[in-house]
Design a protein around this nucleic acid. Structure first.
Lengths: 231, 231
DNA sequence: ACCTTTATATCGTGA
DNA sequence: TCACGATGTAAAGGT
């Protein structure tokens, strides 16, 4: 059982709901979607402003245990109890090594670029350089829909004229067999729809493709489109 | 530019490759698979024994930026530079609020139960209560293989007799359309193999299944097996 | 080094 | 709320 001033301190800090870092000797039990235990040792516990909590070991990016925002955290008989919906973490504290409040912690988000959405936009803006729709240009034009809804989920791009549809699934990373299957899933859904597009072509667009994935596309009669960030 | 004793301290600590926690005002740039920027603010930086590094904001479990194990970290002109293969993070430090070494940090792993692998084992040990193999019992028996390899990847369970094969894909959570497609992928690969199993049945085993996924299974002639942790 | 899969995934979006 | 897909997914396991 933990005694002394640090116990008082942790009780007061947890009660205050301010963010803190606790480095301590403890063991952890988790029960919820799964069960897990973490044997006694020195771990780093981080409690954030959103009342999320995470317990880190000395390696890996991911925490050993965690509980997302809106977790109810309380200190009770030497344990930190974290409850969130149907999930519960119990941290049994053997010894507090240090505890510190974190003040004025920023909540800014990263601004990210080179997402899949940007790749889709890039293809959409210059569709003619990726698939052959020359027959449609000038006369009737080509309609391009993003996130076209099918029974099996939305496909990234559906470009169609009166007589030819093109389904395109886009990946920002190297494509694999699973990605080919995702394309196949949309293809099957569109076939089932019985829309009046006699011809239908399917494409997987990515910066690279694995060997097995290429074979899968060949088997299905699908095509790979190589796309790069730098034109 | 950072001056004074804390600058010396951070330089020495980073050079020593010991784990540390740094709370500081900084901005972050990332370039690698994608690009990102994080505007100046107070963030918590954790450097671990495996030389992974992560930068946390005041909410969410996931770090704002990170770099996995075996990252080369150095301090240069007021910046922490983190390089890992083709990825790079630059942390520009405006002001060090605190920096602390973490000593005797444990690397124990969690012990987890209720994994998918356990579900597979459970079905494997009592296959007869999940699928109808009564015709095979007594006379010829039923062979069960886990992680049976196909051209399109390994399937969780393949139970077969001389004349009837059963492919089973297992999920520990509610099944969706994508899971059905995964099953279909293995099904197609086994059909291609032209093994001497005249009949082939496919199953998706999970604690629950979504509506669209059930429709997908129906379309394909596959079956859903409901499986629970508690018998 | 490449391929494949799981995960207490987390997170956002749309119906 | 449910369903579905993206993620710099990370981490693990196999070939």
């Amino acid at each position: 059982m933990v005694e002394g001033q640090k116990t008082k301190e942790i009780e007061q800090i947890i009660g205050s709901k301010q963010p803190f870092i606790l480095y301590c000797n403890c063991s952890v039990k988790y029960e919820g979607r799964a069960y897990s235990t973490l044997e006694s040792g020195n771990y780093l516990i981080i409690y954030k402003e959103d009342s999320s909590i995470q317990i880190h070991g000395s390696n890996k990016i991911q925490p050993r245990n965690y509980q997302g925002s809106k977790t109810e955290v309380k200190y009770q008989d030497g344990n930190i109890i974290c409850i969130n919906k149907k999930e519960k973490i119990s941290i049994t504290i053997n010894n507090i090594i240090s505890i510190d409040l974190i003040k004025n912690w920023s909540s800014h988000e990263i601004e990210i670029s080179r997402t899949e959405s940007e790749l889709v936009e890039k293809i959409s803006n210059n569709i003619g350089s990726y698939i052959d729709i020359s027959y449609a240009l000038g006369s009737r034009g080509c309609v391009i829909e993003r996130e076209y809804k099918t029974e099996n989920g939305p496909i990234d791009l559906f470009a169609y004229t009166l007589d030819h549809g093109h389904l395109i699934e886009v990946k920002r990373r190297k494509a694999n067999v699973t990605d080919g299957c995702q394309l196949n899933k949309y293809h099957e859904a569109v076939l089932k729809q019985d829309i009046s597009v006699p011809k239908l072509s399917c494409y997987l667009a990515a910066p690279a493709i694995g060997k097995n994935a290429q074979r899968y596309l060949d088997d299905k009669g699908y095509k790979f489109i190589e796309i790069n960030w730098d034109d």
